[in-house]
Amino acid sequence: MLGDINPAVLIASLMVASVPIILAAIGELVVEKAGVLNLGVEGMMIMGAICGFVTAVATGNPYLGFLGGAVGAAALSLVFGFLTQFMLSNQVATGLALTLFGQGLSSLIGQGYNGVKPPLTGTVPLGPLADIPVLGRILFDHDWVVYFSVASIAAVWAVLKYTRVGLILRAVGESHDAAHALGYKVIRIRILAIMFGGAMAGIGGAYVSLIRVPQWTDGITAGAGWIALAIVVFASWKPWRVLLGAYLFGGITVLQLNLQAAGAAIPAHYLSMAPYLITILVLVVMSSGKGRASLNAPAALGQNFHASR
């Protein structure tokens, strides 16, 4: 049975399937690195999906659509930023409320857009490269967002590791009091991180409504935002592992559907649980190591900051 599945195609499919969760997860990773836990990813994604869709339909330009998705979701994330950073509200509760609000608002904006077909986004023309056997199908036959998603991981990785911006961001996430004492504007940095997270989730959502489906229907993101949250944890806040995690989560779904199509009988529900259980296992292995440092979780994650002096 397994012999009937072409691995090149399987890999190519899972790369496409993982794009929305990669984008949302890498955005959330930056947010969490700054010490903020925003559980509203699903709400931001679906806002991105509708804002991107509306923009693309209105302008006829899919690229502007992605921009619109990023802006719309970033605007929504600003609500979260304002509440948690200025009004010092609890991040867990605010994030959950953000998802509720985003789902409602997106559906309101989307009324009248059912059955509309958005302008199409083509694959990036890489000419003869796409014709290379196996590799061509895996690497050189995708739309630009697929490349963008991988590039964004590389960029986040490089920025966090090598730049001053990354250093400051991590400092804020580790100890806001220390960062504040060093003269960094904790609140401002966190707000910017939250907006970045929103924008990336928005692009991820727009990918669903503009390329994956492509159409607007209520609830179109169907829980992808929650998976993105799980992947950040799986990745233990390391950018490249986000890619691995997203391919694992996306891959299991794609694989089980492919196995079915190839005629294999598989227990779909139990297989679908596997990535979550693996993530828990990874968490346990990491945290049972040498204390907090090996866990790599930002120490100030989920705590609000108020400069008392």
């Binding site: 009004m87 509200s89 609890n90 509760a93 409320a97 509720l100 789902q103 409602g104 009324q111």
Partner: peptide, 22 residues
């Protein structure tokens, strides 16, 4: 009223409740 409007309304209520706790 669309059920989405109710959802958004609930979201607003939560936002305000969380905000004014300050």
């Amino acid at each position: 009223l669309p059920s989405a409007a109710i959802q958004a309304f609930q979201g607003m209520l939560l936002f305000f409740l969380l905000a004014v706790d300050l």
